[in-house]
């Protein structure tokens, strides 16, 4: 959340395999998810460092979204899903916390913009606070302005905050959803193909946001767009058929992948 952590980050240290790693934001150990008897992701162990962007790439149906959604316990809503393995968020095993607490820490932006249709732009921004009963009326205006500015939407909507959220364009709606997500002050933001429903200009705006957010949040982004992964992420993970094939620094991944399969996917031989 604070700027000091970023400064520290620049003094790149080697990954220390200690239990309490202050830079570890997310860590999964042998994470598997089954839907009924079908395996969706198979023993995925992945580490995400604080204030970095991790991109997850891979062909459709390889388990990218399944992995992402297990990080904020979204699978609880699917009765047929079973999750095995361990997930640590900031070195805390999430099985010790309620899903409500985890989700306040781990926000999520979805593929299709999904603002609440019955609420205005204003209400959407503070919806998370209001629904959690945390809002004080005196600071709401301030919070709305601040979060819309963070999501670089303020200038476009400041004169029509009371209008329905659905009156915005798709790209604006997505930025509204981002404002809504950061309003609850998460430390990690999961993004599930956040730009795949958007036009190139809106996509560029969201990518710019992601880049600016790096100082404050840890992000994991699922994307179909390899250029996007290359543009915004620090670390890239390649999934294939539910398995983590390769995970390394984005630069290395796109210039000199270790695994042949990754190379074939990146160069467009399949997928």
């Amino acid at each position: 959340m604070t700027g000091e952590d970023t400064v520290k980050l620049e003094t790149e240290e080697l990954d220390k395999e200690t239990e309490k790693d202050s830079k570890s934001a997310i860590r999964t150990i042998d994470l598997s998810v089954y839907f009924d008897e079908r395996i969706a992701i198979d023993k995925i162990s992945l580490k995400v460092k604080k204030n970095t962007i991790t991109a997850i790439i891979g062909p459709s149906g390889c388990g990218k979204s399944t992995f992402l959604r297990s990080l904020n316990l979204m699978h609880e809503m699917t009765p047929k899903a079973r999750v095995f393995g361990e997930i640590f968020i900031q070195n805390e095993n999430i099985s010790e916390y309620s899903s409500v607490d985890i989700r306040k820490k781990v926000g999520m932006v979805f593929q299709k913009p999904n603002p609440f249709p019955m609420m205005s732009i204003y209400e959407n921004v503070i919806s998370g606070l209001r629904l959690n009963g945390l809002s004080k009326n005196s600071v709401l205006d301030e919070l709305v302005e601040k979060n819309l500015k963070y999501a670089s939407l303020w200038e476009e909507v400041k004169d029509r905050l009371k209008l329905p959220a659905l009156s915005l364009s798709g790209g604006q709606q997505q930025r509204l959803c981002i404002a809504r997500t950061i309003a609850v002050k998460p430390e990690i933001i999961l993004m599930d193909e956040p730009t795949s429903a958007l036009d190139p200009i809106s996509t560029a705006k969201i990518e710019e946001l992601m880049y600016n957010f790096k100082n404050h949040y840890t992000m994991v982004v699922v994307t179909h767009n390899m250029q996007q992964a290359a543009r915004v992420s620090d670390q890239t993970a390649f999934f294939y058929l539910g398995k983590l094939i390769e995970c390394s620094k984005t630069k290395r991944m796109f210039t000199n992948p270790k695994v042949k399969l990754t190379e074939e996917y990146i160069t467009g031989k399949f997928g």
């Binding site: 979204m74 809503m77 899903s99 985890i102 989700r103 979805f110 603002p115 959690n132 997500t181």
Partner: peptide, 8 residues
């Protein structure tokens, strides 16, 4: 999902 993801 949007609401749940906000910790509601």
């Amino acid at each position: 999902e949007a609401s749940l993801a906000l910790g509601v």
